[in-house]
Design a protein around this nucleic acid. Structure first.
Lengths: 237, 237
DNA sequence: CGATGACTTGAACGCCATCAATCGCTGTGG
DNA sequence: CCACAGCGATTGATGGCGTTCAAGTCATCG
């Protein structure tokens, strides 16, 4: 339904490739379907598998005891997740929509890795990629305003869901708000304001299709990161 | 001055050990001193070295163009940092107090790693450790209240700075606030309230020595993480 | 059709930010 | 030695952004 509008992200091939190779070679992989809303794995569960989204979308999150939720990432087709840890998952993962996932036994992955440094370097690179994303998200959660957060979200999705002119969001406003550290009402209001200011058009019967009219403007709003004056030199040696 | 009160954290030895080994063996390392407030490396600078705190403390942070700052982590004696990326630093690092750091050339580290899978696994484990910390921090920044944030900060420091009855914080209220996504006034007020409620005593001439009176209470305040009902089974295979 | 779920919008509240005054300690120069 | 500037921290007063509470719309579904 939504996915018809979205092409699979062309990035991540450095690893998707690896996984494909492995599925044809040394590492056993198989595909499973998960219905919308079902749990893929729970926080603190033993991590037996590593997952790749084939079709659909997944959210990974942590909870506080009173129900407050923080979504750490959305995983879209091509993305790999669940390699969070060496033995136990640190997140809960749920299918946002009906999804197909490829599963690889962590154990067999590691068996290959132990004798294949290049493979391990890929794992490091993947983890580093996660780290980069999460660290940027720290800045967003800790220091950006609601409007900036929503703009940043749209920029991120614009880069990952290259639709036919429109972004087809698979997630609800509540998911977005739990990703951005806001309430769903604030997300809604911010989206309306961005639309009012001509940055985007919000369409679709569930208002989940976003036409981005002014990417540069959104980026300016969202990514006011200090243009870091990359001083070189400064060598302590 | 402050460090006299704090013993070096006994954890992290899995890697400190590696680094020590390496410094004695295949990887060249050397020590440098950085004065309080000086930059160790800047965001987007090429990452030539990996660092370990020998003495002192370091903050790593990102900035927005208008000066808003998000501190991602504090690095205390024994901690390793700067292995954020494969080529470029994603953070700025500064010495919080006069500090001594051990530097290892990333290049030589990688030269060893490429032929030593166990070494690379250590690098993965280190990165995973970072990931775990940062992910917990997402939940804190996105979903916890000011009081919970400060309590969580104290619990963290209580675990890392095992002082003689007191925690001797090396950082200012501003640093703490930029770590927790608050203002320094709110941090100060929250600390005062925690003191009023009997959780801690705040002493020292700069009010940076914290005597924790009720750890369990602080943990309860801070870590209301959902007691995750680790459902086992659920094997999709 | 009535029920449910997702979204939007309005109104009022409250937590935290902002602005501002004050205190204590340190270092410096008259 | 003391006056004074400067920094870090606390505390109070006020305000605003985002939350909370509450309608109300629209689409889907039994």
């Amino acid at each position: 339904m939504f996915r018809n509008l979205n092409a699979v992200s062309p990035k991540k091939d450095w690893f998707a490739h690896e996984l494909d190779d492995l599925s044809h070679a040394k590492v056993s992989s198989s595909e499973y379907k998960y219905n919308k809303g079902t749990e893929i794995f729970g926080e603190a569960e033993p991590a037996k598998y590593i997952y790749q989204v084939v079709e659909g979308s997944v959210r990974t999150y942590k909870l506080l005891s009173d129900g407050r939720r923080q979504i750490g990432a959305f995983h879209l087709p091509g993305d790999i997740f669940g390699f969070d840890n060496y033995d136990v998952h640190r997140f809960t993962a749920e299918a946002i929509v009906d999804s197909t996932l490829r599963l690889v036994k962590r154990e067999s992955m590691e068996r290959v890795a132990i004798s294949d440094p290049a493979m391990v370097l890929n794992l490091v690179a993947m983890t580093t990629q996660n780290l980069r994303h999460v660290e940027n998200h720290l800045l967003l959660l800790g220091r950006k305003t609601a409007k900036e957060k929503v703009a940043a979200f749209l920029v991120e999705m614009h880069g990952r869901l290259t639709g036919a002119g429109a972004i087809a969001l698979p997630m609800t406003r509540r998911d977005i708000s739990d990703y951005l550290g806001l309430t769903l009402e604030t997300v809604s209001r911010s989206l309306s304001e961005l639309q009012r200011c001509g940055y985007v058009t919000v369409t679709g019967n569930m208002k989940r299709e976003i036409v981005v009219l002014n990417v540069a403007g959104l980026v300016l709003l969202a990514e006011r990161e200090a243009a870091n004056e990359a001083r070189s030199g400064m060598d302590p040696g």
